[in-house]
Design a protein around this nucleic acid. Structure first.
Lengths: 237, 237
DNA sequence: TGATAATTTGTACATCTGTACAAAAGAAAA
DNA sequence: TTTTCTTTTGTACAGATGTACAAATTATCA
């Protein structure tokens, strides 16, 4: 008897859940099968190997998530006000990572956490995918930000996009820390608030003056360090 | 014959290196022994178990790193200018994570990357340590920032400290991404630049207005969303 | 020197791992 | 029904894993 009408989905879901919380190597095929209520042999039947299973998870999510991101980005670029536009661009990048709008309900955050864990583990199977698929999307966002902040060198925007992705990842990996450090004032697992906090913080960081140059003339008289002169921040010129 | 005068150190160093790049479960005791030029049995002799080895790595680094952080924080709090002080505080948090000033040469970044990987894998052995040792230091920093930015609720500062740590972690975990996306313009492994970029971006994000309230009155007339009204950012009141 | 302690080595073992594969069970179509 | 295809199950296996432990080796010190 076929207990579960769609065992393939159950296995995928179980694997996604376990990989995203424990990592790839810490989870065995038997663990996945147990969680999915399947037989271990059934896993290799559907996905051939453990690597194949991981690959299938990526295939499942990458497309919809980045498609949604680009949709939102296109809309964001049409916003008139520079400030509003920048915020819309960042939101277009962040939002689909927390909750994919595709049919996979609530899978967005789980998949992003999975990406974070795989990235930390230096997973070889996944490394290729990241560079090939995600870099295109990220480049589109960097270009859009570049147009809204033309006075900043691309190099600096890349650094700041790195910080954004890191913040995004860690928020999903370790939400308890927010709850703990805020002594219950904030809920680290509240994704709506996470998005708002992340967007506002990122928009501000994107608008910071470049570390060398740009706002330097403003406070030239001031004695200070060589790089990143202290106290030179006030507003974009 | 004792080939290596301090085999214990060699094992610790090898384990640190392997764990920080591949994760905990992907590295076997035999891998570590091979890397250290030791016998597998020697590892359990010195550290009793694989968990014990990981624990010993943390004991080795946590103290010096957080001690250095607090030293720098104390100095930073004495800075007069608010802007300069905030920057000094953030730098005091970031700098020791990249290069510990202790006798362990260059071990700071490697250990921080290790922490990032363990955090992503949800390592149980380490979870306890993080909360007990690192939260104290982090709280000291949040308090210091709170004093420099008294108009912001603690809750918001906790979120932004979360983003800072995430950015820090990811920069060490995946520096190649910066190099790749910047098309060689930037070197993601250049830690001096990573620190400067991270500090300047973080100082700006800390100074952003709170997502609900604070700067709301300024643009009250503006039609907009409920939370985080778009276009409300201009300057701290 | 010789005796005692500290370390390193080699081996062994029970367990878990990914995967293969034949047999069984079920579903679909004739 | 019978036939054919798809899926699930159970078992097996070769290899890796953490760890224990006795023997061999080296260092320390009387």
């Amino acid at each position: 008897m076929t207990r579960n009408p769609n065992m393939r989905e159950a296995i995928l879901s179980a694997a996604e859940s376990l990989f995203s919380t424990r990592g790839f190597n810490a989870v065995s095929i038997r663990d996945i099968a147990l969680e999915a209520g399947a037989n271990p042999g059934s896993v290799t039947y559907h996905f051939k190997s453990k690597d194949g299973l991981l690959l299938e998870i990526y295939k499942r999510h990458c497309g919809p998530m980045n498609k949604r991101r680009i949709e939102l980005l296109v809309a964001a670029r049409r916003v008139r006000d520079v400030q509003d536009r920048l915020e819309a661009i960042v939101r277009a990048y962040v939002q689909p990572a927390f909750s994919s709008s595709s049919d996979l309900a609530g899978g967005g955050a789980r998949f992003t956490r999975l990406r974070a864990v795989m990235s930390a583990e230096g997973n070889a199977v996944v490394g290729r995918i990241i560079a090939e698929i995600f870099d295109d999307t990220t480049n589109a966002f960097i270009e859009a930000i570049e147009q809204s902040l033309p006075h900043l060198p691309r190099k600096t925007l890349v650094w700041r996009s790195q910080f954004l992705l890191g913040a995004l990842y860690y928020t999903l990996v370790n939400p308890e820390r927010v709850t703990r450090l805020s002594r219950g004032e904030a809920d680290g697992a509240d994704m709506a608030e996470a998005i708002e906090q992340l967007v506002s913080a990122t928009v501000a960081s994107l608008q910071a003056p470049d570390i060398n140059g740009e706002a330097a003339a403003e406070s030239a008289a001031k004695a200070g360090a060589r790089k990143a002169p202290a106290g030179s921040r006030s507003r974009n010129p």
